[in-house]
């Protein structure tokens, strides 16, 4: 079979494996850094979003709401395009930073929504019990609500990270050398001259990364649930 021949050819050609390795590095770097930005900024956004209404929080809350609406309401590809060709249209600006910021910002909106939902899913009675004991709101949040919210949030955050990793495949749009670009290069006219095999192989790489991540999330979830029934 031609298909299997070509798979063997791909794995046995150092040049192609070098391409895949290079692409894998880029994909992982963008994914990890963007995930970190997403988690940090997303947590911050969520805190603003659930803050009590007052004249001090009114404007930040509005900005936060608009930000989340815009980011979630526009395609990632267009956000990346604007980031690369409008905001960071600076000579020699490293694309990896552009992409990391674009994906980090995008992810933060989803993370914020997940965290907000997670915090709201904790029974209001937990907060009331804390406050009724005379604990300040901050302590109640940190010691009682957030530890319980995390358990509800982890699966949703996991989904978001998976989506993030797969979505980084569009960075080839701005010419970046990620896994998808590696497949395009290996499949281009002067190399294998067919996209089908390299695309399939690269798909398996994505699957592998996502599987590992899923496995990690399962472990964390299991550990958190263990504290439920001891």
């Amino acid at each position: 079979m031609d298909f299997f021949h070509k798979i063997i050819e791909l794995f046995s050609t150092p040049k192609y494996m070098e391409s895949i390795w290079e692409g894998l590095k880029t994909t992982l770097i963008i994914s990890v850094l963007a995930a970190l930005i997403g988690l940090l900024l997303g947590t911050l956004l969520a805190i603003v979003a659930i803050a009590k209404d007052s004249k001090w929080t009114k404007l930040p809350k509005l900005i936060c709401k608009i930000y989340i609406t815009v980011i979630r309401g526009t395609p990632m590809a267009l956000q990346l395009f604007i980031m690369a060709y409008v905001i960071f249209a600076i000579r020699g600006f490293p694309q990896i930073v552009t992409a990391t910021i674009a994906f980090g910002l995008n992810s933060s909106a989803y993370v914020a929504e997940n965290i907000r939902a997670g915090i709201l899913s904790v029974d209001i009675g937990q907060t009331e019990a804390g406050r009724a004991l005379g604990l300040p709101g901050r302590t109640t949040m940190l010691k009682i609500v957030i530890p319980q919210a995390i358990k509800n949030v982890i699966p949703a955050i996991g989904n978001e990270l998976i989506a993030l990793i797969k979505e980084t495949s569009i960075v080839s749009m701005i010419g970046m050398y990620d896994l998808t670009m590696a497949a395009k290069i290996i499949g281009s006219g002067n190399n294998m001259a067919s996209y089908i095999v390299p695309m399939t192989v690269v798909a398996l790489f994505y699957l592998g990364i996502v599987y590992l991540l899923t496995f990690g999330i399962k472990l964390i979830e299991k550990r958190l649930r263990a504290s439920d029934k001891r």
Binding site: E128, A129, G130, R131, A132, G134, P136, P147, K151, S227
Partner: peptide, 21 residues
Amino acid sequence: INLARQQMGMVFQHFNLFNNM
């Protein structure tokens, strides 16, 4: 208010024990 609440114990209909502790 937090100081005042320390002097008033409250018991709820749904117990509201902290589930994470």
